[in-house]
């Protein structure tokens, strides 16, 4: 880790991200639409209205899921 970056496990992969990133900014970082993605931070669901007020910390685990085809 150098300077203002943090390491976060996103969907099972360690990613280097800018520090002080909110979850809403994280979605934007990956080009994702918050209306179609559900976010889990350290196994707890983070509801959409609070994505912008929730900051990601070094060592966090984030899951980003959406609906796909299935039976």
């Amino acid at each position: 880790m150098t300077g203002n970056t943090i390491h976060v496990v996103v969907n099972g992969e360690s990613r280097e991200l800018p520090g002080n990133l909110t979850l809403l900014q994280l979605l934007d970082h990956f080009g994702l639409d918050p209306r179609t993605v559900v976010v889990e931070l350290n196994r707890e669901i983070v509801r959409r209205p609070v994505l912008a007020g929730t900051t990601v910390s070094h060592g966090d685990t984030v899951e980003l899921v959406h609906f796909v085809g299935g039976g």
Binding site: N11, T36, V37, V38, L64, H66, F67, V68, G69, G71
Partner: peptide, 19 residues
């Protein structure tokens, strides 16, 4: 119609979800 819940593919983030 049924749908499944899966991880977003971050390396192909432009890939469209079922919605």
């Amino acid at each position: 119609v049924t749908v499944a819940v899966r991880r977003v593919d971050l390396d192909r983030s432009k890939e469209e979800g079922i919605l």
